[in-house]
Design a protein around this nucleic acid. Structure first.
Length: 266
DNA sequence: GGAGTTGTTTAGGA
DNA sequence: TTCCTAAACAACTC
């Protein structure tokens, strides 16, 4: 499920726990989810620590704790964060529960594609500090957009937009949405865009990120009418602009939806 | 029962 | 060396 805005939504779910002390840290099972983490050290460090802040970058989340603990969470394909009552006993797919006096902060992920990281340090850990600039940030300039298109010139646009080092937070539906709004065919080679198309793609990407953060990211409300998102899951869905039945095929290894008329190949 | 899934990592070939 | 693709990971729904 989670792309940029969904990740932000889930980060907010733990917001009521900010400022409160974690009394108990429950970890469920073996778990590839915790690969690379010294789980006992994490449990020791977070027990008695206060949750002091959190942020998202792309699909990554970081939770900061008193005592220098940093908890990184990636939701994978099916992860979610939620609140449950105090003394909550984790179910089968609930891998991490931070028990506070008034609530439990729960990380659930049935498919185990998610990932937990942990560090103790003064500054944010290296794997966090080195993440690329947000698509919505000032650093995501037109020059940067052009450089990315040039550097991965042979990649199909759809595959390029899914590369997290370049477009942090963009996932399958956002990539399709952006290409549809920019009227670009998903199989177009990145290096073949002209100046105007590159500018359009950047503008559209930034708007989609900002708008979905203000809707989905806040309360899971719907993005604007007329977005491809509202029809892309339905089989036999039609283009919101021209009404033509949408195309559907694998591009860049992922199911891709586009309009054969509005996004005609050049 | 089989196909498909809003993500990432890795192996292997070009 | 660099870049790209397909498979693997795992559990659920249709």
């Amino acid at each position: 499920m989670p792309e940029l805005a969904e990740v932000e939504y889930f980060r907010r779910q733990w917001q009521p726990g900010q400022g409160a002390v974690v009394q108990q840290v429950l970890v469920h099972g073996n778990k590839r989810i915790f690969r690379g983490v010294d789980v006992e050290r994490m449990q020791a460090a977070l027990s008695g620590a206060k949750l002091t802040g959190s942020e998202t970058r792309g699909k990554q989340m970081l939770f900061r704790f008193s005592g220098g603990g940093w908890l990184g969470i990636h939701l994978g394909m099916t992860g979610e964060l939620r609140l449950e009552p105090p003394d909550y006993k984790p179910g089968k797919h609930e891998h991490l529960v931070l028990g506070q006096s008034r609530r439990s902060l729960v990380f659930r992920d049935p498919r185990l594609f998610g990932r937990v990281r942990f560090a103790i340090s003064r500054e944010a850990p290296e794997w966090w500090a080195t993440l690329p600039p947000a698509v919505t940030s000032d650093a995501f300039t037109l020059a940067r957009m052009r450089a990315i298109l040039h550097r991965r010139g042979r990649a199909p646009l759809k595959a390029l937009l899914l590369m997290q080092p370049f477009f942090p937070g963009i996932g399958n539906w956002m990539a399709d949405e952006a290409l549809w709004q920019a009227r670009l065919h998903p199989r177009r080679a990145a290096g073949r865009l002209d100046e105007k198309e590159a500018r359009t793609l950047r503008t559209v990407l930034r708007r989609i990120c900002r708008t979905s953060l203000r809707t989905i990211g806040v309360d899971w409300s719907d993005p604007p009418e007329g977005w491809l998102l509202h029809v892309r899951w339905k089989k036999g869905g039609h283009c919101p602009v021209c009404g033509l039945e949408l195309e559907r095929a694998q591009v860049g290894g992922r199911t891709t939806v586009w309009c054969g008329r509005c996004q005609a190949v050049k």
